[in-house]
């Protein structure tokens, strides 16, 4: 198994195992194959959004309605979503798993991309637990994230440190 390879179909399978009903997503440069895989997946509704801040609030509504949504956005979009995360994520104890594209991630810590530089400090500051997924071998962290979100009644992030691959 190649380190750093993350087949979109395997991630979709991990979502199915968690009985996810909806993925609220705004595509970014690394998620093209994931987006395509979600479009093909009949058991999960894909909700495209115009701006990331909507995602956590739509998820809150789905949660109220008894569904099991996840959010799929990029780190830059998570920063844009700050007030929504505060008010309708953390503030209402929403047990939400957020798949966040880790743009600029290099595995070395040294990155010129401020979207990557600020991501983990930002999550620590907001007391949002997170799990980093660098490839298929790390997909066991997805159920950990769901279990933790449910146990602690709060948003938990899964940081995707690689590009989704086809298949």
């Amino acid at each position: 198994m190649e380190i750093g390879k993350l087949p979109a179909s395997k991630v979709v399978e991990s979502l199915r195992r968690q009985s996810v009903t909806h993925v609220i997503a705004l595509p970014d440069s690394e998620t093209r194959h994931m987006y395509d895989a979600l479009v093909r997946e009949p058991t999960i509704e894909l909700i495209p959004i115009a701006r990331e801040g909507e995602s956590i609030c739509i998820a809150a509504g789905l949660w109220i309605a008894g569904k099991r949504p996840v959010v799929m956005i990029q780190n830059a979009g998570l920063f844009e979503s700050g007030d929504a995360l505060r008010g309708m994520g953390i503030g209402v104890n929403q047990p939400l798993v957020m798949f966040v594209g880790y743009r600029g991630y290099t595995r070395r810590g040294d990155t010129p991309d401020t979207a990557a530089q600020f991501l983990e400090p930002y999550l620590h500051l907001w007391r949002v637990p997170y799990y980093v997924v660098e490839g298929e071998d790390d997909l066991d962290r997805v159920p950990m994230a769901f279990e933790r979100a449910a146990r602690e009644n709060q948003p938990v992030a899964v940081l995707i440190g690689t590009e989704y691959s086809p298949g």
């Binding site: 509704e45 801040g53 739509i58 509504g61 789905l62 949660w63 109220i64 008894g66 949504p69 008010g87």
Partner: peptide
């Protein structure tokens, strides 16, 4: 009823989620 006292401007987004879920 849900009043949006935190989550500025997001009444339409919360409402959309509820509408899609039910």
């Amino acid at each position: 009823d849900v009043g949006i006292s935190n989550g500025m401007s997001k009444a339409s987004s919360l409402g959309l989620g509820i509408a899609l879920g039910r």
